[in-house]
């Protein structure tokens, strides 16, 4: 079944220059394999569409049940150059939690 990522994970996002980082963390570490399978760099890049001009990199932190995404060229120039209200990407983590992921009932119950 399809669920929003917010059912099983929380997130925090910030900036490094024109790159936004989003940490996505499973509430229950047993759901980490679902995160790792469903929330790929490609899906994150697709999800944000024109907002992310560059590549999306993904790093894995199984010890924290978490993934770290780097969204390059995603903050309108970043730092002081950016003309956006959210020049630091503080709200992008909350946006990503609306991503729909595919999960089986047994995975969700585990």
């Amino acid at each position: 079944m399809k669920i929003p990522l917010s059912r099983i994970a929380h997130a925090r996002s910030g900036d490094k220059g024109d790159t936004s980082n989003i940490g996505v963390i499973a509430f229950d570490p047993r759901h980490y394999p679902v995160l790792a399978r469903e929330v790929t760099s490609k899906r994150v890049k697709q999800f944000f569409g024109e907002m992310v001009k560059g590549q999306v990199e993904r790093y894995e932190l199984p010890n924290l049940g978490a993934l770290n995404f780097l969204l390059h060229d995603a903050l309108g120039g970043g730092g002081t150059l950016s003309l956006r209200i959210d020049a630091q990407g503080k709200t992008l983590g909350a946006a990503l939690l609306r991503l729909e992921i595919e999960v089986s009932e047994s995975e969700l119950a585990s």
């Binding site: 929380h10 997130a11 925090r12 980082n21 940490g23 963390i25 509430f27 790093y59 924290l64 770290n68």
Partner: peptide, 16 residues
């Protein structure tokens, strides 16, 4: 633990 995890991931690049 959840709160600390969020901050560990904040403004993180390559975690290794």
């Amino acid at each position: 633990v959840d709160v600390v995890k969020e901050q560990l991931l904040y403004e993180l690049g390559d975690p290794k």
